[in-house]
Design a protein around this nucleic acid. Structure first.
Lengths: 321, 321
DNA sequence: TCAAAAGTGTTATCCTTACACCCATGT
DNA sequence: ACATGGGTGTAAGGATAACACTTTTGA
């Protein structure tokens, strides 16, 4: 049933075989304990994906089918990320045009039915420089001189200054503030500077995986970076975190989840006020005892807010540091 | 050169003819004097569009090619809007799958080379309820009872309440604040309530065009609504208005442009402070005499801001009303 | 008793909003 | 003189950020 569309790839228009293939690809995110995770398939780190086919009722349902088939994981919240095209030369007589439509999906990790060959990995295995919850990560310090060297290696003064400035903004050099939403720009910069494996070139120029992060197949890591950046900006103005939470949770659990996504720490009292004042949650009446300290009130998401207003925000009270 | 890919549409996999067609479609926006405009082609109101083809170097360059070919208009700033799929039944033996990748493009109206069969029309011809610069528009008052009637006509009490509430939020009933960013939700609601021509059904249920707006081909008006909503939210946190301005401009001209896009009035002193304090512009040293009053300083956009920081905002100091 | 986490209160600061007012030009 | 638009100053109110502090449990 799933390969009705493959005939398309065999159509011939001239001497060269030409085909347009439409792929659906998903960044499936969850938060486990305090770690933000992404779902991959296979050994080499691929995001779940598959061709859009005639049997699919819609793009989203096609995506759901593929992810469920490849990982056994049903998807809840889905939003589109970006569509891009690549021209792959497969052989001398064959040229393939790939259109990839990428999505961000949010779930809870325990909702896994049958893991099959799928794997949950922390975001920060792929992007070690993105986790600032315990201060600036070591990877960032090790990347800094290499980025500066890359900037210096530009041809003329203008290009050097421009590279230097882009790196400084994205990676918060010279006492600039860290901006967690620039995850995509940072990956792109590292790619340009050939500091990640996917950029090709000689292996020796790429730092160890603990610094440059785990590579993924093709441009999947770039798509993951897109998803992370999107989610980090979205949690600030839409109540999407709740898609990642269990039905009931404590406020600190909620805070830890947001911190995991943002890769930064949040001021506790201010975060609680923000959440409560926006009426995003309501008490269940129960308390959780397994907190390690004083029992905490349990809350649930007030789904009604989605109807009540065009929600404007869950802004983050980030700590200055 | 442009029809190499059409062979794809003829590939046959079973008894039915099946084809996947990838279309590129553009919302091309400009601001003329005080009116936000969109570029259409043909008599019936179509957005410029065409199939993505093998000869195109990329999706964006394919889009540029089509728009330039159909309207004679070169594009500057482009951003992707959304990708969606539709299943069109063309005949008994033929089924067509259409994937449309939509874009928002910004230009200056005077940049037109040769208008051909293209036409600039005001946004508010298509969406008369969206222009609140002279207070709540008449169309809104006329749509209100029909939306309420639609809400009342739902099957059960829960559905009635839900429709009522959605309409109230989107259209600012019951003294709710008007939110210009909900342009898409408003169009979708009117479509659902069969108050726009595209929804089909009997013509009599649709109000006059001065109330329900000018229809467009297929789902083009929906795509236009998507573009408007995106632009209205984007001007608040990225300096994209400048793509629509002449190289030099007065601050009031800039303000009028933003007001045209937002469909709302802005407080003058606060707007000026905002723009200046964010260092988005610099004086040219010249002044404009054709203002009808005291000569105004001319400014130009400081392109450097794009490099200096990950620009966070041009928030709008909207007036309360 | 102490550690750990829950939870509250207060203050300084900045940004937004509203509004009042003066300036320079053409008719 | 006055209409039109350019341009500045200020003050109230709300949101944010920082931090000090109390409460309740388990070990």
């Amino acid at each position: 049933m799933h390969d009705q569309a493959t005939g398309l790839r065999k159509s011939i228009t001239s001497r060269k075989r030409r085909a347009i293939n439409v792929d659906l690809i998903a960044v499936v995110a969850a938060v486990s304990d305090r770690e933000p995770c992404v779902l991959t398939v296979g050994q080499r780190g691929s995001l779940p994906s598959g061709p859009f086919e005639f049997s699919h009722r819609s793009l989203q349902s096609g995506l759901r089918d593929w992810v469920e088939q490849q990982t056994g994981h049903p998807l809840g919240y889905i939003e589109q990320l970006y569509t891009f095209a690549d021209r792959d030369r497969i052989g001398a007589k064959s040229e393939q045009r790939n259109i990839s439509i990428s999505y961000l999906a949010l779930t809870r990790q325990e909702a896994i039915a049958a893991p099959r060959k799928s794997h949950w990995g922390s975001w920060y295995e792929y992007f070690p420089w993105e986790d600032h919850r315990s201060g600036a990560p070591e990877a960032l310090g090790l990347l800094r001189p290499r980025l500066l060297a890359w900037a210096k290696s530009a041809e003329n003064a203008a290009a050097r200054r421009e590279r230097r400035q882009r790196a400084a903004i994205a990676f918060a050099f010279d006492d600039r503030p860290w901006n967690e939403e620039l995850a995509l720009q940072r990956y792109e910069l590292l790619y340009e500077a050939a500091l990640v494996e996917e950029a090709g070139g000689d292996r020796k120029s790429v730092p160890a995986a603990s610094v440059s992060g785990r590579a993924m197949v093709a441009d999947h890591r770039r798509i993951l970076a897109t998803g992370i950046a999107r989610l980090r900006s979205k949690i600030k103005y839409r109540p999407v975190v709740f898609e990642l939470m269990r039905p009931t949770f404590t406020l600190l659990q909620l805070q830890r989840a947001v911190e995991a996504l943002a890769g930064r720490l949040i001021n506790k009292p201010n975060f609680r006020r923000l959440v409560e004042q926006q009426e995003l949650v309501e008490e269940t009446g129960d308390t959780s005892l397994d907190t390690g300290g004083r029992p905490a009130k349990l809350y649930r998401f007030r789904h009604a807010v989605l109807d009540e207003r065009a929600v404007v925000g869950t802004k983050l009270p980030l700590t200055r540091s």
